[in-house]
Amino acid sequence: MKTSLGKRLLNAPCAVWSAIFIIVPLFIVLYYTFLDKDGGFTLSNIYELAQYKGVFITSIIYALVATAICLLLAYPFAYFLTKTSVSSQKMMVLLVMLPMWMNLLIKTYSWTVILDNNGVLNRLLNLIGFGSVKLMGTPGAVILGMVYDYIPYMILPIYTTISKIDNSLLEAAEDLGSNAFSKLKRVVLPLSLPGVLSGITMVFVPSISTFYISQKLGNGMILLVGDIIETQFKIPNYPLGASMSLVLMIFIIISIAIMNKFGDSDSGGVMI
């Protein structure tokens, strides 16, 4: 069927937008990846990445740990939230979303005030006689920052899928002999899987590419891919930065593809 002119005109702004802000930048990244210092074609930028293998692995581990913690905290929270009254659900969802409307930099920076050697937490510890603890610059601080910043993206999709589960299914499970645990295992968990998968994606992707959190809360002691990429563009060494971005991007796309494979594509949920 032929698309009418009107429809094509309506689509035009969207196409132009994605061309300018998505397709073109991708090609620019691709172009720089294979650019050598004299402007010719080279693969050396890719080979050079081998020495950053450690950073890539660290980043993956940090992102995995942050995602796992988010999941472990968010799932029970979302599950019990669906059991409360409608009005308190609305209130809690609002509270979960509230930090999402705040700037990530500000949120992260606020943590430095709390975790600093002379920060709120350490002063409190001193006050009750525990003495100072080094918090800033530890892996724990970075993970904390990631979890804090990204946990709403885990809670919301999980909460949405659980609250969409038809109550009669839970009654049916109970009717067939399921106690609370078995209901959770056999009905709620499998039916909320799409929400879990999209939550994982939405936390893992920003976690693996973050640089500000590790800079601020890691005190520069912990280097993640995001930090290296940022440095490369500051130096500036565009070709290396671009090649790292490309590899990271490919890795993320592969992870998302694997996640999508897990969840039945037709089972809903919020996929990005």
């Binding site: 038809d166 009669s168 009654e171 049916a172 499970a173 109970e174 009717d175 067939l176 399921s178 106690n179």
Partner: peptide, 17 residues
Amino acid sequence: PAYKRQVNTIFQRYALF
């Protein structure tokens, strides 16, 4: 509780999993 009762229900909209 329902899960300990020796009755089973056929629900109005079947409630199949």
